[in-house]
Design a protein around this nucleic acid. Structure first.
Lengths: 190, 190
DNA sequence: TCAGTTGTCTAGCGGTGCTAGGGTTTCGGG
DNA sequence: CCCGAAACCCTAGCACCGCTAGACAACTGA
């Protein structure tokens, strides 16, 4: 009996090993470098074992995404908890969100831009995702009601602005010298 | 002498044929389906002729992107011209921007999300790109000065919000039932 | 007519995600 | 202790990808 448990434990460890290897490879060389062959070589197994853990490459990046999601949620929550005033919290959370995207570009892509099959809307999305969204939604809701606007749409708009800044910044499509001005406009407007 | 001209004309026509085929294929089946082999089959030539026109596949999607850019600029300009009041113009341009992204998802991706090597900042970007950006920047600048904010950062923020909404909507990451509320928040806030 | 240029195609290279099949190891009961 | 059964993993390969070398055909211009 205990043997089965040990096997299951080893399997789980190897699965984490795969996810970790994929994330590291993506973060250091970009997602293009994350091929099943390189991944297999890195974990010192052959490619087919990857498919005994995940349905395909997409499932691997999805696993990386949910892991990243949890980290993002933790960071945003921690920042939000430092502030009493919702407006100040909103600004700080926004800055933390963008900082996360800059610090972990590959992780951010896995979560939000790659075509992963993660359910996102209100149905059964990973709990970490709800958590991260809530960290933005709470101060945003406070700001929306103060402005007499529907909180739901307002929150999605604010998130869209953050996401837009994150992605456009990475593509070199926004002027770096305007970072400060842009952020000032965000805190002034939202 | 005239023979060279005819040849050059035919080459230009074939180049347009390639760009058109790439765009159509992308729009109907997504960019994943745009492979050099399928593209070659569609224009009824072999793959190598593609490389006598473009440096590689990236250059082809870049060509599609600048073409789409011009169209976007025309549409935004046309919408902006209908309004005298900058505020009303801003809202209409924003709606037109999002409508463009919904109507031509592959085109939008080619311009803004794919890793094309288009220069974007202030240096030598395609003229059409400046044109499109200006169509957003002008009403945004009016709105920014009215709010006493730096127009440059304000404009980039507004564009980020639009871009974020466009991309998150396509990924099914925003609730469709909030489209109206989200847009109301946009016009109220910017 | 005929060399030289131009244009195009076939075939192939190294890479991708993914899978079929077989061989080795380990397990569990007689 | 031993052996059939199950679990596990690897080698080899498929069909596809972007891209290119080299051969071949067609056209040009003297």
């Amino acid at each position: 009996m205990a043997i089965k448990e040990r096997r299951a434990r080893e399997r789980a460890e190897r699965e984490q090993l795969i996810v970790r290897a994929a994330r590291e490879l993506a973060e250091t060389e970009g997602w293009d470098a994350v091929t099943t062959r390189r991944l297999a070589e890195r974990i010192e197994y052959s490619q087919p074992v990857l498919y005994s853990h995940f349905a395909g490459k997409d499932a691997i990046v999805a696993a990386v995404a949910v892991q990243g999601c949890a980290e993002l949620a933790v960071q945003l929550r921690a920042v939000a908890a430092e502030f009493d005033e919702p407006r100040a919290a909103f600004g700080a959370v926004a800055r933390a969100y963008l900082a996360f995207a800059v610090a972990n570009p590959a992780l951010y892509d896995a979560i939000f831009t790659m075509a992963n099959p993660l359910p996102f809307g209100t149905p059964e999305a990973p709990a970490a995702l709800h958590e991260a969204f809530a960290a933005i939604a709470e101060p945003a809701t406070a700001s929306a009601t103060a402005a007499g606007l529907d909180p739901a749409g307002y929150t999605e708009l604010a998130w869209s602005a953050l996401h837009g800044m994150a992605t456009l910044t990475r593509g070199g499509r926004l002027r770096p010298d305007l970072d400060h001005s842009r952020m000032a406009a965000f805190t002034a407007v939202f």
